[in-house]
Structure formats: structure tokens, C-alpha cells
Simulated scan of single mutants.
Amino acid sequence: MRYSEVRLYTNQMGLEVVSGILLSMGITDFVTEDPEDLKDFLDKKNSYEWDYVDESVLEISNVEPNLTFYVEYSESGNQILQEFKTSLEEMKKEAKKDGMDYGRLELSVKEVCDEDWKDNWKAYFKPAHITNRIVVKPTWENYEKENSSELVIEIDPGMAFGTGTHPTTTLCVRLLEKYIESPDDIVLDVGCGSGILSMAAALLGVQTVKGVEIDPIAVDVARENVKLNHLDSQIDVFHGDLTKGLDLKADIVVANLMADLVMLLSEDVSKHLKGKGIYISSGILIEKQNQVASAIRKCGFEILEILEEDDWCAIAAKKCCK
């Protein structure tokens, strides 16, 4: 399907006014780029909000404030576009009359095809060995096992969820391979996302895997991936919060989150582990390794080992029984 991509260059005050115009027209799906939003984002209100910012995110600091929305390339879409242009001209007249500064208010309209942007990200997701044994492949790619010992996870993560190829995922799977000892082990995957670690544990032979996730959309994605891999009988994915009334004991807890969340949740992890259970955590930048390891120890764990890859690390710890 063809669309008109409509982009308006303005300033922060103009973004507010134009957003109001679009909402009054019934257009709720639009994107704004504003360097002021980046400043708010970088001014962390909570220590656990983010641990790592990709350099591409910082590029918005040099972007002129703008707003983008799409309308169908059709007669009805053209009517919407003309209505918006009329409102924009009225806005310019009011601004001139009242001495308001809304920036340059320059409009850019170009034709795009949804196939040009909707699925472009898929071109970069190919079958990948995340460990020697485990391969992650997208649903739209063919893959033939190189040997009979390979375990293949097939996923369609959606644009908002991980593909499983990040170093933190690889490190967690390597530790799962090492510390899963029996099919009777119960594995709890905290913040399971698209379900990669839950499915890896199941393919490694665990018969009972619980994936908990606070994002209901991620729960749906993970459940679909579990079903796609025919692992429904082994994996249960549910919406929940480890800190709020989760009644479950596991032999292994795996949490691929971020450093501050790992530290925040470690005490609750201890409550959900059996005996001398194993706690595998990642999403931790190497520069925070010592800080996280210290916090884990304070929650009653012994550090067994720390794996590193690129800028990231994963920590395996054992619960100390009193």
C-alpha cells in the first residue's frame, strides 16, 4: 500500500499546537522528534531507567523539532492532507497576528510504500548461532542444521522485541547450558521478553519453565513464539511482577535485564529460589560488574563465575543456605 509521509518542521511550541490540530482531526498516530525530549531522557529520574544509550539515539540532539504522520495515498487521504494544510495556513496567520514564533513551519510530503519501512528491519535478522549448540532463526528464513546436536529456536520477535543475538542473551544461554543439571529443574525467566531464554531452557531439556513479564504485549509475543516452537507443554508465560505476590520456587532464575534492575530484584530472586539455587543475571555493562556482584552477594549469594563479551557481562551466583 502507498502512503504520503507528511513531515512538518517547527519548534517545541509549534509541536504542541500541531499535535492539537492532528488530534482534533482524529489523527492520533504521529511521531515527534524534539531535542528537549532527549534532555529529559538523559536526566534520569530513576537509576534503573536505562543503563546504555546507543550513539544513534544521541543524534536527535542535532535534529530540528519536527512531527511526522502518514495518510493513505488515496482520495480520502488527500482530503485529510488538504485539511491539514488549511489548518496549517490558519496557524501561520494566527502566529503572525499574535506575534507567536512557531519556527519555520515548512511542510515536506513524499510518497512511500509500507513495504519500504514496515519490514526493512527483517533484512538484518538472519539465522545465528548464539552458542555452539543453539541457533536462533527468524520465521521467514530457511535453515538446515549443521549437525544433529544443534537446537533451533524459531521466532518472529516483532519490531519491538529482541532477536536473541545480543551478547547478553548469548552469555545467559551459555550459563544455562552449564548449570541446568536435570530435566526436573524448574527455570524462572524474569522479564522474558520474546521468550528466547525460556525456549533455550526448554530445548536444553528442562520440563518446567516459567516466563514472567510485566509488559502484556511481550507476554503475547512470547506465547506466540513458544507455540511456534511447539514448547507449550514445557513453558508457561504469564503477566506478573517478581516483587508482587509471585508464588513460585525455582532451581534456576535467569534475568537478562539491566544492572540497576538486577540489583533491585536480587533480594526477591533469593526468595524464589530453592535450596542452593542458581541465579543467572545479565544486561550488565562491564563497568558496573563489581557494583552488581557486590549487591548480589549482599542478598545472600556466592558468585560462581562472570562471563564477558564485548561491553557486557553475565553473572552466575549460588544461593547460600543458612
Rank of each mutant, 00 (worst) to 15 (best):
D54R: 10
L261S: 11
R223V: 06
R133T: 14
K298A: 15
G211E: 05
A200F: 01
R297H: 05
N132R: 14
L88P: 06
H230L: 12
L23E: 13
G195Q: 03
V254W: 09
N11T: 01
S47Y: 06
G103M: 11
D311T: 00
I21W: 11
K45T: 13
M13F: 13
K122D: 00
K85Q: 14
T243A: 13
G283T: 07
V253F: 13
E49A: 11
C172Q: 08
K110C: 05
E146I: 01
I134W: 02
L175W: 09
G205N: 04
L265E: 11
V109P: 04
K274P: 04
F125W: 12
A255L: 08
P65T: 08
C320Y: 09
S74G: 05
L261K: 14
D189F: 11
D215N: 12
K96D: 15
R2M: 11
K118N: 07
K137Q: 01
S266T: 08
V152A: 07
K122I: 03
D54Q: 02
L8N: 08
E267K: 14
W121F: 10
D54H: 10
E144P: 05
C113F: 10
L38K: 05
S74F: 01
T28C: 00
D43P: 01
Q82I: 03
E94V: 13
I60F: 07
V152N: 07
V63S: 09
L175C: 03
L304E: 14
L265A: 05
D98K: 15
K39N: 13
I214V: 15
L242S: 10
K145Y: 05
E305W: 09
K271T: 05
T131R: 02
N290D: 15
T165M: 02
I286K: 15
M258W: 01
Q291Y: 03
E305M: 08
L265T: 07
S61P: 00
S281H: 06
D268R: 10
V63W: 03
V152F: 11
K45Y: 08
D116H: 07
V269I: 14
Q82D: 15
E59W: 01
E213D: 09
E144H: 06
V237Y: 06
V269Y: 03
N66M: 13
D232Y: 04
A295D: 09
L265F: 15
L42T: 04
L307E: 10
Q291W: 07
I180E: 10
V262E: 09
F30W: 02
K298C: 03
Q234L: 01
G20C: 04
L38A: 05
S281W: 01
F301C: 11
E36Q: 12
M91V: 13
V190C: 11
G205T: 12
V17Y: 06
V292S: 09
K271E: 08
N132D: 15
K85I: 14
Y73Q: 02
I186H: 07
L67G: 05
P138H: 08
